[in-house]
Nucleic acid binder design. Structure first.
Lengths: 238, 238
DNA sequence: TCTCGCCGACTTGCATACTAGTATATATAA
DNA sequence: TTATATATACTAGTATGCAAGTCGGCGAGA
């Protein structure tokens, strides 16, 4: 295999701050770079090069990479190198499977709460969806996706399932990575908004079954986007 | 707070081998020590002391502790120390919530498979349960618990949900930690065996709903053990 | 007796250096 | 020309030392 071209992160606005551990900040930066496809699947990541880019030693970089390997974003091959994991349909399906299991459990749990609490949650969710509408009107896909993250996490957070929210975020990221390969999201805005509205309505109704179904429909829907991508970008897949 | 007494691991039979990274081995040893309550909740873990016990430097120990903090087994307080996390009912409930979501999704998925595949899985599971029967006859609770792990992981592994199996294992460990506080498991053997049999039967029947219910019943059942423990050992709880 | 401040013994975070293993390119030999 | 050995430039794994922050004890002073 020919040696990979050296990568470079957009180092602008990526200065590390001093008020929290460098490793944690680097973890965030690199994760975002992988999700946004700035770092491409299969690409070699050099601990040394990253360390230089961030102006730190290898140690915190290494700790960040270990954490990234835990969530399946990089693969560490001892004495050979650390690589951004290639996309694999099997892994994406499983990530989605996990997400669905967790998110469906969360909403049906939530729908079983008493009305007052449900209304509180519904209010917050509607606020997020309204912001999403604005983002869709502005065709601001980045804002739209951030709000999408927020929507899905908020349900778990409201029910005090913080660890669950973490896991949902981590698994969601695998799908987002693929989604960022197809840039034309704009056709999807309306569908997503409708599905989010349906989820909120189901929560409002207080029926765990309806809520579970609405969430399930929403999460299954993304697979429609997924059909063509491996053929368009075979080089990114395992 | 009075400084904790220095801990000591049973270093016998805990020599590190040279064929795989020290950090990974240390991770396993310390995780097992925490699950088995050899390292007690709230206890201070010193990177230096652990490094001496294993005959390595702080670096691999530190990497192992970072990973343990990811799964919620230790808490790293910068410049203050690394502590074994105390038990908390909220965290245990959530771990169980996550497990249930995942395992229910796995079995109902599995129950929807075609008969031939189901029979293959059922055969393997019955083998595990038979071994569990033997372990219960011998009153070998350690073997029983290991086989329990194997049973629950195997369902996910058979459906090629490897990441899911990992998550199940990690979350299950939180419950096992509590369970190891009450040593009188022997009264439980029969109930567990019956519930496992019910799960297998439901898979055999091919009904995702029945399988989901059987798994759900089984996972909810552990809460019966959980009532008294915080009162018996308040010092281990947050 | 109580309070404040300092000192020392800890802690983790990070930088640096060294080890050992791997892959590629080059040179050498058949 | 082709196959093989070797040098070289990488890689991650680990050891070590220092920096910076925190905690507990001790003593001085009120």
């Amino acid at each position: 295999m020919a040696r990979q071209a050296p990568f470079s992160l957009n180092t602008q606005a990526k200065e590390l701050s001093f008020d929290r551990p460098a490793a944690s900040q680097i973890f965030g930066f690199v994760r975002d770079a992988i999700v946004s496809m700035e770092l491409q699947p299969g690409q070699l990541i050099s601990e040394t090069a990253l360390a230089q880019q961030f102006g730190v030693s290898r140690t915190p970089v290494r700790e960040a990479l270990i954490q990234l390997s835990n969530i399946g974003f990089v693969e560490v091959l001892p004495q050979r190198g650390t690589y951004v994991t290639k996309l694999s349909m099997a892994k994406i399906f499983e990530a989605q499977f996990i997400r669905e299991a967790l998110e469906v459990a969360v909403v049906s749990n939530l729908a079983g709460f008493e009305e007052e609490l449900r209304n509180q949650v519904v209010g917050e969710c509607e606020k997020i969806v309204n912001e999403q509408k604005e983002a869709s009107a502005d065709d601001d896909s980045l804002a739209f996706q951030n709000l999408d993250d927020k929507f899905h996490q908020s349900l778990a957070i409201f029910t005090h399932h913080l660890r669950t929210a973490e896991l949902i975020e981590a698994e969601k990221a695998h799908m987002d990575r693929v989604r960022n390969l197809s840039l034309h999201m704009s056709g999807q805005y309306k569908r997503v908004l409708n599905q989010h509205a349906a989820i909120i309505k189901a929560i409002k109704s207080g029926s765990p079954d309806k809520a579970a179904t609405a969430m399930s429909v929403h999460l299954q829907d993304v697979f429609t986007v997924l059909e063509l991508i491996p053929k368009e970008h075979p080089e990114y897949f395992a």
